[in-house]
Nucleic acid binder design. Structure first.
Lengths: 130, 130
DNA sequence: TCCTTTGTCTCAACACATCAATACAATGAG
DNA sequence: CTCATTGTATTGATGTGTTGAGACAAAGGA
């Protein structure tokens, strides 16, 4: 479990943990059944409050990526095959926000799609991390 | 100048004004050369503080959509033809944020693009307003 | 049974963005 | 020259989200 948290980043620490774990689960780095570190342990490693890690785990549970099994800890689940429908309203909101931002700057659909393609490419590039 | 501001909305009032004026400028409802209402006048109409309108105008000026001509007021400029390059880092950031959100939920590029297409369609639909 | 270890909950402090009010500077009409 | 009208700058209040610390409940092993 190599995680990094930058307290001065724009995205809050709990969201950074959430995103990194989610990526590792989806990419298979953390296979289903893996036991995540306890919130206190991880909090200690990262030098943050336990509550912050707890929140990240809570959000991950809402996403259906992990399950907390009481006394035994928190475990990785098999991620459901993703579809636009299942990704839910949160993804739709993100898409709408992006569409508004793009339209607002005068871009048409094709230009907006190109920007997303570029962003995706840039996203895949530095995945040497994790 | 028919503008609406919902103080309880998620997007802050200054951003609502900014977005609505930007849309009207880009769509030609407000042709170049049009004089915008003074910040005090518009603030009065909307029942908000002058400073809030001032901020919206300031952001619009940064976008290059309007120009303030000192004593004479604030005027609509001819919007530059939009390109992805010119839309600048703000658009790139929005695209990256969206790409991360989508990847984070396990969507691939095509699914993410579909969601944007849907959002764009939904955006064009209720443009009976403005 | 007792105690350790797990996640959960609650509450206060803090940081940050936004808004409102007010004072200010510029500038052109009269 | 005077002054009304324009946008600008500063300051304080407010609300929201995030963090941190600690108390709490559950549950299995010794």
């Amino acid at each position: 479990m190599i995680l990094r948290v930058d307290p001065s980043a724009a995205t809050p620490p709990y969201a950074q943990i959430q995103a990194q774990v989610a990526t590792m689960v989806r990419s298979g780095v953390l296979p289903p059944g893996t036991r995540l570190p306890t919130i206190r342990h991880l909090a200690n490693d990262l030098g943050i409050a336990a509550n912050t890690v707890a929140r990240a785990y809570r959000e991950l549970e809402l996403e259906g990526l992990v399950a907390t099994r009481g006394r035994h800890g928190t475990f990785v689940l098999a991620p459901a095959p993703a579809t636009v429908e299942v990704a839910g309203p949160a993804l739709a909101d993100a898409a709408t926000a992006y569409a508004m931002e793009a339209a607002h700057r005068g871009l048409d659909l094709d230009q907006a799609l190109d920007a997303v393609r570029s962003a995706f490419r840039a996203l895949d590039e530095p995945r040497r991390l994790a």
